[in-house]
Computed example of a mutant assay.
Amino acid sequence: MPSKTAKPDRPNQTPRSVVFVVYPDITLLDLVGPLQVFSHAEDPATQDKGYACQVVSVSGGMIGTNTVLSIPTQPASSLQGHPIHTLIVVGGQGAIPGMRDTQLVAAVRDMAKGAGRVASVCSGALVLAASGLLDGRRAVTHWDDCARLAETFPKVRVELDPIFIQDGQVWTSAGITAGIDMALAIVSEDLGRAAALKIARAMVAQMVRSGGQSQYSPALTRQLRDGAGRFESLHLWISDNLDAPLTVEALAAEAGMSARNFARSYAKSLGTTPAKAVEAMRVERAQELLETSSRSAKQIATLCGFRSEDRMRRAFLRGLGVSPTDYRQRFRAEVTSGGAGSA
């Protein structure tokens, strides 16, 4: 089992071995997203490939996914005696029968003994938990599987919100694209932040996100609640005019409704008041700017329509339970001079 403190070694300066464990009915993107990250990664010191990737299953051969594609794999036994830098268990609907598959669980447990780091993508955490590798550790999985993970494996300290969690040398991630975030964070730990940023740019991915950020998207939540798309164009307009005085009257006029009817209809559809929705969108935009730009808090407050730093601070405390300053310190990406986010 990997150490809680020691970082994975790289024997003889060879590329770091990353082994993906799959089984029938995995989610294909759970595999290929992180696989693409590690395949892109270069060691900045040598410009050589940073990782050598392999995909294994219990018996090897072609393994079906949740798409029309099957993937070729090596048998897990072929790695016996070979050091593994990072072992990653992929997720998918097959993880539920997989956590009950004694051969798969035993194979994961055996490979983990020689691995410097162990990780899971999405519901792959169920297989890790079945192997005992998450006992006593903080862990996360896709929000739809968090209850199952907690109930089936009570020794695991399940957290519902983060996109990924690192507990010592064991990493777990939430659903699908969070596996890419986790992989980028692993690259950053191994090869440095510049190497991770280079991959993110190449993949046209969002800037490397910290694991403490939420796996729940406020924008997606709005879309789900507004299933018929009644206020979709209004939300786009709000997003383009956050620095304007967005009163209920102004929103109602844009929606082509009376203020009273608009406020009632909006609250019924979205489960929140227009004022709270506007504040949430302003906080979301401010989060993005705090993470990716070098603008001052005062500038960001003005751009997002808060009118003052104090108003923005109170909105952050209400919505996130943290101040803008603390948020920036925790999640801010490195901003280079002249970058896209610079003032």
Rank of each mutant, 00 (worst) to 15 (best):
S57Q: 05
P8D: 01
T14G: 08
T86R: 00
T86D: 00
Q13G: 14
L31T: 08
P324R: 03
G168V: 11
R209E: 12
P15M: 04
S57M: 02
V283Y: 11
R148N: 12
A277P: 09
R328I: 05
S214L: 00
P162S: 09
Q13C: 09
F331P: 09
A267T: 15
T46P: 00
A263Y: 00
G61A: 05
A130P: 10
K268S: 14
R260I: 14
K4R: 12
R330T: 10
F20L: 14
V58I: 02
G114H: 01
T247Q: 05
F231A: 05
S294E: 11
L31I: 02
Y216F: 14
V19A: 04
Q329P: 07
N261Y: 15
F331R: 13
T102H: 13
R209K: 15
E284L: 08
G116W: 09
H85F: 03
G168A: 06
G175Q: 12
A45W: 01
I180P: 06
V278K: 08
Q169E: 06
G94T: 15
S265L: 13
A194W: 03
E284D: 11
P162I: 07
A280Q: 09
G33L: 04
L133G: 12
F38L: 02
D30L: 13
D181K: 07
A297Y: 11
I176D: 14
D161S: 15
R193S: 14
S39T: 00
G338V: 01
D9R: 15
A244N: 10
L242V: 09
G94C: 10
Q329S: 15
M312T: 03
G179R: 02
A52N: 15
Q47G: 02
V170A: 04
R328G: 09
R16C: 04
A119P: 02
P274F: 06
S308A: 07
G91R: 03
L126Y: 09
G305E: 03
P75F: 04
R282H: 03
A280Y: 03
S294W: 01
G321P: 08
E42C: 01
D30A: 13
A228I: 03
S308P: 06
T5E: 14
P24Q: 00
V105Y: 12
P274I: 13
D190Q: 05
